[in-house]
Design a protein around this nucleic acid. Structure first.
Lengths: 240, 240
DNA sequence: CGGTGCGTTGACATTTCTCAACTGTTGTGG
DNA sequence: CCACAACAGTTGAGAAATGTCAACGCACCG
């Protein structure tokens, strides 16, 4: 029963999807499911990496604790995403902290020894792991690009446009994965700045925001902002 | 002759070091060496990823071209480092641009088809590739953390302390891998700000800089700055 | 010898942060 | 079930950090 559940969750992972049932079954053998409560620590930085994880329920935050108390959020993981593969396959220890963000948060735990063994035996598993790692590289490279943009407006616009959204006749509805404070932290900006920015855009009719849901009334303008068109001048001077 | 040279360079790569000679020989079979001149393009973003590379001579810059002409440097690669593994193994196309930064820049080119084939045949090669990818993840995660630090002073201090340095009785000598303009671009700050920051530190006796070499007279103070100790106050108020 | 681009400096504009106050919501314990 | 505490979110005012623009010296290269 549990075993079958594990197999089911495993094969739902993006890079394990292509694996045949027997391969999945072999991976499932060494795995187990564990549950955390909100804000509980999953692992800490520098701790020995004994396993990597996949989110089955709830969500997880990967962050680096800073001296001044302002943590830097590296990622926010949701159902169907895996993390800490690289720590397990290479580093030996976790390079960041992870904690559950909901109660309950259920994770599939794939122990280090188990993966390393399978990696040697089956090239299809190796290929799957290579896929997982590659995806992380792309995500991180995007993140580097995002953070290296000086203008906060551009940063926010880009980020919003990348979030999953539902479109209804030219308008997009986005539901933030966390609080606005989290979003600010993710973008490395002050919460006040985020609030003000949203207000300005609201006043310009670009969007509306109620709690965690944001309605993009005019996605095109936001795209223009994301492309670096100066937010201020675009409002007054139509064509100088 | 050339073949032997290729094998030699291959086995010098960090994650290929552990591979036995016969495995190296098999990898070498499909590789070739190519030379670029300074500023020549090695590949562009979105181009089909036909191969990944290792630097044999010279250096390479990986960057993303921005609309406003201000490119974001993702990495600066030097002899013995490999790049674009993830593009070849997963994405299908390169996610960024690469160009040679010196004349001549010699690269070892490992074609996509060749790696993919070997990956299936030999788990030791798969393990080596997994290692390469994992290392990239760590580098990128560090970069994200670096860029998410608000204070430019802290950012610069951290970066300098991570650069390879030679130590002579409590003093460290650092030779920058590129121009100061490059450094500024890498840290996402204005060149003027970098110049001013170095001047302030020079006036405080923390360091001296002549061209591309920086002499850290007092690495401890720089470490304190890197740890977030406020640069300004630490100079005047000894113990309030 | 002239051109090109880096590095530096100054003056100034702008962005973003910080601090402080206030509101509304949520959750908790009595 | 209510009172209270804790915290997200908003707003304002002022401070601080950083970018922009302009000018200049200097080295390097053709």
């Amino acid at each position: 029963m549990t075993r079958q559940t594990i197999e089911c969750h495993l094969s739902a992972l993006p890079h394990f999807r292509a694996l045949s049932d027997d391969v999945i079954a072999r991976i499932a053998q060494g795995c187990r499911m564990r549950t955390w409560r909100k804000l509980e620590c999953i692992f800490s930085a520098n701790e020995t990496a004994r396993a990597f994880f996949a989110v089955v329920e709830g969500s997880v935050r990967i962050y680096r604790a800073n001296v001044d108390g302002r943590d830097q959020i590296l990622h926010h993981l949701r159902v169907g995403q895996s993390f800490a593969e690289a720590a397990v396959l290479n580093f030996g220890s976790y390079p960041a902290d992870a904690r559950a963000m909901e109660s309950p948060t259920v994770l599939l735990e794939i122990p280090r020894e188990h993966v390393l063994g399978l990696l040697r035996e089956d090239h299809r598993i190796a290929a799957a792991m290579v896929g997982s790692l590659s995806r992380w590289i792309l995500v991180l490279a995007d993140r580097v690009e995002e953070l290296s943009i000086a203008s906060v407006g551009v940063r926010l616009a880009r980020h919003l446009l990348r979030l999953p959204a539902t479109s209804i006749c030219d308008e997009l509805t986005i539901v933030l994965p966390g609080s606005k404070k989290d979003l600010a932290e993710h973008l490395s900006i002050a919460p006040e700045t985020l609030s003000r920015l949203l207000r300005v855009w609201r006043e310009r009719g670009i969007l509306e925001s109620q709690g965690r849901s944001i309605l993009l009334r005019d996605p095109r303008v936001l795209e223009a902002i994301a492309d670096g068109v100066d937010d201020v001048r675009s409002a007054d001077s139509p064509c100088p």
